[in-house]
Design a protein around this nucleic acid. Sequence first.
DNA 1: AAGTGGTCTAGACCACAAC
DNA 2: TTGTGGTCTAGACCACTTA
Lengths: 246, 246
Amino acid sequence: MPAENTQPKYRQIADYLRRGILDGTYPAGQPLPSEEALAKQFGVTRPTVRQGLTELRAAGLVEAIMGRGTFARSPHKRPSLTRPRGVRRTPEGRYVEADGIRWTDSEDATITRTDAPLDLADLLRIPPGEPMFTYDALQTADQGRLRQLHRTYVPFSVLIGTKYETEAPPAAPELYAAFADMGHELHFTEYVRPRMPLPDQAQALRLPDGVPLLHVLRLTTGKAGKPLILEEFQLPGDDLELQYPL
Amino acid sequence: MPAENTQPKYRQIADYLRRGILDGTYPAGQPLPSEEALAKQFGVTRPTVRQGLTELRAAGLVEAIMGRGTFARSPHKRPSLTRPRGVRRTPEGRYVEADGIRWTDSEDATITRTDAPLDLADLLRIPPGEPMFTYDALQTADQGRLRQLHRTYVPFSVLIGTKYETEAPPAAPELYAAFADMGHELHFTEYVRPRMPLPDQAQALRLPDGVPLLHVLRLTTGKAGKPLILEEFQLPGDDLELQYPL
DNA sequence: AAGTGGTCTAGACCACAAC
DNA sequence: TTGTGGTCTAGACCACTTA
C-alpha cells in the first residue's frame, strides 16, 4: 500500500504552484493560471483554489491584481538596494548616513509628546512614563520610490540644562550635531528585527501582501554611555537589505 | 449622508479583533471568541469569520490551535533575546561569536558540492557556476529552544594551494582559524533582510503562521579584501533581535 | 463583452482537545 | 459528549481590467 497523500487539496495546489514559482515554470511577474482554470485542473471548486492562493500570498510568493490575474513574485532573489548602515561626521560637523540617501519628510510629519512605554524606557534608561519629544514622519527619496517610516524620541530629561529646555529640539539626524556641540562623543547601536506590518504601515510603505518589514531601533549614546536619542525605522522588506561591518 | 462603511465584512471583523489585541482587550496568550460566536455576533457565516481570522494569522497577530481555540499573540513587544553580532578571536587563536551561544548541529547536517548561483558568485567575486563546498545544518542551542539554519559556502578556487585541496575543509567558524593560520587577516560583513519562510523552513524553525525570518549573509574576506567564505543564517523572527554597533 | 479576482452564503463533514 | 478549528462544496453576485 503506497503512502497515501493526506495533504488537503488546497495545500496540494499551493505546493504545486510554489514548486512552479521556485523552479522557474512561473517566472517573477508572469501570471499563474486563472482560479477557474486551476479549479478545473484539480477538480475542485474555486474557494478551494483560493485557499491555496491565499497561502502563497501570505508567503509573498504571489500577488493578485484585481481584474488582471495572479502573478508570481521572487522574494528570494538578492534585493536591488543594499544600504550600508552607519553615521559619518563631515568636516563641517554635520552628520550624514553612510548610504548617502537624502530623505524628504512627508507633509504630515508630526511632533508630539509621548510618555515612554516600558520597552523604550528600558533602552533609554529612564523611568517608564517619562515624557519624550516624538517626531514621526513618512520619509521618501528617489521620487517616492524609496520609503521609510522614521520616528525620533528624545526624553525631556536629557534636554534639561540645554537651550532645548524652552524650544523644541530638531529631529535626528540634525539632533546629533546638537548633542555633539554640547561636548558629547556619540555612539550608535542598532537593534534589528523583522515583523509583519500593520495595515496602515503596509499602506504607507506600499507593501504587497506577504512582505515583512524591518524594524530597526537606533540608540544614540553620549558621554559615559548615557542614552540620548532613540530612533525607530520601519523599512520595506521586499527589495532592500542592510549592510553591517562586524 | 454619513460616509458609509465600504469595508468588506471580513475586514471589519479583522479590524475589530486587531484593535482588541493591540489595546489589550485580548492579551497575548488569551483566547478570542470562537468562530461560531463571532459569526453570530457579526451576523455572518463562519467562512466569513474565518477569512478575517486568516488575515490576522498571516499578520502574526493570532495563532489558531486545533480543537482549543484562537489565541492572541504580541508580535510587537521587544524580543526576549538580543544577539550582539560579531566575531572575536581568543588568545588561543580560535574564533567565537560575540553572543557566546554554543550551537549544536542537527544529525542530518550535510556537506555537498554546489555550483555558485549568480547572486552568491557576485558576492564571492567568482564566476557563476564555479563549484563550492557547502555545509548545511539545522543548529540548536539551549535544549532546542534556540534554532537557526546555517550554511557555509567555500569556493574550491580559494582552497587551491592549501591543504584543503585534497581534504574537505571544516565549516565556519572553525574555517576562520584555518584561513587566519594561512596569514589572512579576516574581516566580516553582514547583509540582513527579512522574508517569509518556506514551509520546510517554518517547520525546521518551528515558526507559527505570520512570523517572518531574518535572512543574514555573512561574507568573510582576507588579504586584500579577497572574499573567502560566505555564510547564510536563517533566524526565527518572532522573539529575537540582532544588535550591531555602528 | 469577456475574463479576472473579491465577497459571501448555507450548509456538510472531519479531526482534535477537553471534560 | 461537547466545543473547537479544518476542509470542502456549489453556487451567487460584484468590481475591476482589457479589448
